[in-house]
């Protein structure tokens, strides 16, 4: 495997890991949503993300050609091999936390995957095209609910503001490009950070303003590490639960 392919595989894993970990988080809420309709919507989003993770993983597995399929990539890697953003592994917390996390992620995901539809890599562009329809809906839904909560009662406003303040430090990582990201940009595969960040800030700013929520400063200190395999303490527990069966009965077919 040449270096060029290695960077692309790493990049695909990041995309897959983001979708997989957030899907796992949302699945935890199955049967616990605040209303039946919300419950269905959350699990729909979780299923969409899981489908996207499968597409990215399958492509990454084929490309790296080391015999790892989507299951091996999801179930047989430990926390330090995961490359998801720290944002998506954060606990669900209360419903405002879940939705603000979703909204921050959806906004990035929408612009990121939107740009990937123009990727020089045809396969990536194809997967992006397919995913973007789902993500467009996710973004509309989470944005709408953030406005409803922020501009709702005094209590829902307070919860939403707290969630925004607490999750804010995990929103910079996506735009903090490392060697792998820069190689992808250079090859015309991925979009540049500056443009994405401007789009993200503009949309998040609009929605938070409508939600009467104070936006934290964009230049605030940002947490990072997920893309390099350095995670918060939450990911290990999430994986222990997710991977239990495969670890206990390795190689079982299902």
């Amino acid at each position: 495997m040449d270096a060029k392919c290695e960077a692309k595989c790493a990049y695909l894993l990041r995309l897959g890991d983001n979708a997989l970990v957030l899907s796992q988080r949302l699945s935890e809420l199955c049967g616990k949503g605040p209303a039946l309709e919300e419950d269905m919507a959350l699990t729909n989003v979780a299923l969409d993300l899981l489908g996207q993770a499968r597409l990215w993983f399958t492509h990454a597995g084929e490309l790296e050609n080391r015999g790892r399929d989507e299951d091996a990539l999801a179930y047989l890697r430990d926390a330090h091999d995961f490359r998801n953003l720290l944002l998506v592994e954060q606990p669900n917390g209360n419903y405002a936390h879940t939705l603000v996390r979703q909204f921050f992620f959806d906004t990035w995901h929408y612009f990121q995957v939107g740009a990937l539809t123009q990727s020089s890599d045809q396969r990536i562009a194809g997967i992006a095209e397919k995913s973007l329809k789902e993500i467009t809906y996710h973004l509309r839904r989470s944005g709408d609910l953030v406005v409803r909560l922020g501009d709702g009662t005094a209590l829902s406003h307070a919860y939403t503001q707290t969630a925004v303040d607490e999750l804010w430090m995990y929103t910079g990582e996506a735009f903090n490009y490392d060697e792998i990201d820069l190689q992808m940009v250079a090859q015309g595969i991925a979009p540049a950070a500056e443009g994405l960040r401007a789009q993200w800030l503009a949309h998040v700013g609009d929605i938070l303003a409508e939600a009467t929520i104070t936006m934290p400063p964009p230049d605030a200190w940002m947490q990072k590490g997920g893309k390099a395999g350095r995670h918060t303490e939450h990911l290990g527990y999430l994986l222990a639960e997710m991977q239990f069966l495969q670890r206990a009965y390795p190689g079982a077919t299902w």
Binding site: E37, A41, N44, E134, Y137, D144, R148
Partner: peptide, 21 residues
């Protein structure tokens, strides 16, 4: 039928509950 606080959310919910998109 379904429950929703307003028409917009009723539409969103109907999409999730009844159309599987």
């Amino acid at each position: 039928s379904l429950h929703a606080p307003d028409a917009d959310m009723a539409l969103n919910n109907a999409r999730d509950v009844y159309t599987r998109r």
